[in-house]
Write a protein that binds this DNA or RNA. Structure first.
Lengths: 341, 341
DNA sequence: ACTGGCACTCGCTACAGTCGAGTGCCAGAG
DNA sequence: CTCTGGCACTCGACTGTAGCGAGTGCCAGT
């Protein structure tokens, strides 16, 4: 931040705002016309020369205007952007849109569409994670003498199901006993705490149930813990075409490819502390395919606990203040909604 | 079909094949070189003039080669394409890919990715419909004295859950009785046949359960029947960028928009009789946004019953024989897989 | 009925020239 | 020391022209 006085920062802010709005390199003359900088173009040019030297802006080619670099956007986001409050209309839209949700899946579904619509970008929402929730109920449904369907209901309302292939046929009574036992031991426990208890289940089990319980416990562990391959909802991919191929340097391909990889999406969205909001600009998200993209993401959940992440992906040249405000607001509403249930 | 002798048809076939392969308008000279037509370019030109007059091909501009029209593709698909058997490698890929599936969701997920990968296009798979399946088990889980979670397990292995808000608090015993009653009456019934039985449930119900049962039955009906808003899985959108914007007349936007509308997708994929395969070319699928796209779709399910649809979407200029073979094969494998469960 | 030849069309590419936005630098004013 | 006005310069965008070549339609001949 070496020799950047207030005016130079104001110039940078103006450049970012103009470029985001017009999508065209911005020159010194246009700048003084559209913003009240109180100095002449020549002065601005000197400032721009400094900003360029410091790596905050660059020229696509000689005799063109300036364009912010990733570093420039970063500075803008960190120090220059002024909060843009949501319009009442937007607030109402959020409330109305989310109010109609009938179940958890629906909440996620609506949220992702809402985000995409409000930000006019690609939205990503992670289904509420199981890890922090508690077991509400376990159900075993016999399908044949050697097959069960295990259904797990969490207190977030989420349901997971899994097929269990037993090593040997067992009578219906035993299934009932298994069901009773696992419910007794596991209901009310936080999912991340279950593994030792599942192990104990086998040890304490009456001998005739041992083989079945052993198989069941494997599946239980998978369902309760390893099933971290969290599901993800996506919406607004059509918004990628907005900039008419100017964004994303001409090819949507790498972006679309990245969006198909759940692992990549989770990396983008996840790992955020509650009520913190993260902005990753261009290279900052470590993924080659997303060099030309920025991601604004945050965690959400009832109160301070965090059940999942959500976020928005767009060109590095995007309306950061607006996007940030929207993502934050939507996450808060969803958190409140989840707290009510 | 008027004056089209065998050679003219052969010419049309050659044009389609070449155009699909090269993506460039094909001229008379190139045609005789690459296919053994046994006649001179001039003759081919005359044939092409006729084909153009009949509307099977057209010239993008004077002095360019010919390109098939939607009508030309239609004729090609109906009468000219020779079946392209799958390579053993492909067969093995299908088997291996689907073999590892752990549950129903996973089957769908794997199928859609497989289809996208094999056809190098956008794949769409409908989750197995509930309508044709039977109720395996109904579970009621109390959440508070006025709230239950209803979980329905179908014999396809699919699970649906829904929140029930009771009009008044009811004791745990009553929940058990409700649970017993609904299971007694509904297990084993095909979902599409349940509505009259659900109605009867209220009438036959002991008075103290009436209010609760009335609410429950509403939710039951929604879950069992109206929940026709079938879910859909999508993969391979990155493949849309393959033709480098030559396909889809330069803008992916309308395509991406259409793909976000579940309703549209269902229309594309659904409504197919078992073991029939449907090809819709360009305008034929009635959706404006998909003028430039073709869809190959079919139904799937165990044996002759059909549980859902799957299909592939690509540019009208696509490898119909190959795509058709792949879609058919994948649908059959998935059907067999479902029959085993 | 097919073929070879020929004139014609027209999109594509290359090239030259002009225009103008935007820059860097410098000398002078405050 | 900072700011300003002026000026020469750069370089991409756009325009117009010319030549090339793929491909066609037509016609006369076998």
């Amino acid at each position: 931040m070496l020799g950047l006085d207030d005016r130079k920062l104001a110039v940078l802010r103006a450049i970012v705002e103009d470029y985001v709005a017009t999508q065209e390199p911005v020159g010194s003359k246009a700048l003084v016309e559209r913003h009240q900088l109180g100095v002449s173009p020549a002065t601005v040019r000197n400032d721009m020369a400094v900003l360029e030297e410091e790596g905050y802006i660059r020229q696509p080619h000689t005799s063109a205007g300036r364009v912010p670099t990733d570093r420039g956007y970063r500075l803008f986001v960190d120090r220059l952007s002024r909060v843009k409050p949501l319009s009442p209309a937007e607030r109402r839209a959020i409330e109305r849109f989310l109010a109609g949700a009938v179940d958890l899946d629906d909440v996620v579904h609506r949220t992702v569409r809402l985000l995409a619509q409000l930000t006019r970008q690609v939205a990503v929402v992670q289904y509420p994670s199981l890890a922090r929730s508690r077991v509400r109920h376990l159900e075993l449904v016999p399908i044949s003498t050697t097959r069960l369907t295990l259904v797990m209901i969490a207190d977030t309302g989420r349901v997971e199901q899994r097929l269990v292939e037993l090593p040997a046929p067992i009578p219906a009574d035993d299934v009932l006993e298994l069901r009773r036992t696992v419910n007794e031991k596991l209901v009310g426990i936080q999912l991340s705490e279950t593994p030792p208890l599942v192990q104990a289940l086998i040890d304490e089990c009456p001998p005739h149930l041992r083989p079945a319980m052993t198989t069941l416990s494997t599946v239980l562990l998978e369902t309760l813990v390893e099933r971290h391959e969290e599901r993800i909802a996506l919406a607004g991919t059509a918004n990628l075409t907005r900039g008419g191929l100017l964004d994303f340097q001409g090819s949507l391909r790498p972006i679309l490819e990245a969006l198909e990889e759940e692992v990549v999406l989770l990396k983008l969205i996840g790992e955020v502390e509650p009520s913190t909001l993260r902005v990753r600009i261009g290279d900052e998200n470590q993924i080659d395919n997303l060099r030309a993209a920025s991601v604004v993401s945050t965690g959400y959940g009832p109160g301070a606990t965090i059940l999942g992440g959500m976020g928005v992906l767009g060109p590095t040249r995007m309306d950061y203040p607006g996007t940030i405000a929207t993502v934050r607001a939507v996450a808060r509403y969803v958190g409140e909604l989840l707290a009510q249930n």
